[in-house]
Simulated assay, not measured.
Amino acid sequence: MVQRIGTMAQDDRPTDGRDESPEERADRLWAELLQEVRVAQTGAQIMFGFLLTVVFTERFTTLHGFDRALYVAVVTLGAVATGTLMAPVSYHRMLAGRHVKPRMVASAGRLVTLGVALLALNVGAALLLLLKVAGLTWGAWAISAAVMVWFAVCWVVMPASLLRRHGSKRQE
């Protein structure tokens, strides 16, 4: 029987209710990370694809000044978000079999967090562009800001609140 000491078992296994080795834990976390990436990456790629088509429409020629610069920023954010969310694939291809999965999971996890933040900025900026082109001037700014606040509440504030209420210790 394994004797529990603090939050770790005597054999360095976390006491989070799972009986898994560090390698098994890394495999599980990697699989969970890839599932998360699939959701975010699909949305990012679809949005990026639609944004690329805008430049080929007649309406695009009417964009000038700030709106055209905003379009460039939106497309650039979309490209960077998509590339960042795809980075775990490259990590896995380059690092598979090299016995670095726990570090790979941690690093790829940070990239996914960054990719989701970039995707939020991309959605907010695309919404601003769309609403401005639709004729809303200051309303576009207010609605886009409200959506960004909503993302912050759903994606940051609510999970942080849950951690505060139910414990914030992370088992690595």
Rank of each mutant, 00 (worst) to 15 (best):
E20W: 12
K132S: 07
N122R: 01
Q10L: 14
M158T: 04
T76L: 08
Q3C: 13
Q171G: 11
R59G: 10
P88M: 09
V156M: 06
L77C: 03
L33H: 10
E20H: 12
L29C: 07
F50K: 06
Q3V: 14
L119I: 03
A108K: 05
L130Q: 01
T137D: 10
L111F: 09
I46E: 13
V105G: 05
V37K: 02
A69F: 11
H99T: 09
A96F: 08
A79W: 03
L77D: 00
S90V: 15
R103G: 01
V147R: 03
V75E: 01
G115L: 08
F66S: 05
A106G: 03
E23M: 14
T82G: 02
T15P: 01
M158N: 10
D16F: 09
R4M: 01
T57V: 08
R25K: 13
F48S: 13
R25F: 07
A117R: 07
S144Q: 08
F50G: 13
A87R: 06
P159Y: 03
V55K: 13
V100R: 07
R103N: 04
E172A: 15
V147S: 09
K169R: 15
P22A: 07
G6T: 04
W141M: 09
S21V: 15
G115Q: 01
V153P: 08
A140N: 08
A40V: 04
Q45H: 14
L129I: 07
Q41P: 02
L118Y: 00
M86Q: 03
G65L: 04
A73L: 11
T76S: 05
A145C: 08
A108C: 04
R68P: 00
Q10A: 15
R28N: 05
L118T: 00
V123F: 14
D12F: 12
T15S: 12
L95S: 01
G17Q: 01
G43F: 15
L33D: 06
L34K: 13
V54R: 13
T53H: 07
V72M: 08
R18T: 02
V147P: 05
E32S: 14
F50T: 10
R110Y: 05
G78S: 02
R38I: 13
V54L: 10
V123E: 01
R170W: 11
M1R: 10
V74T: 06
R38E: 03
M104Y: 02
A134R: 11
G124Q: 04
V100L: 07
S107P: 04
V105I: 09
A140F: 01
L121K: 00
D67Q: 15
Y71C: 00
E23W: 15
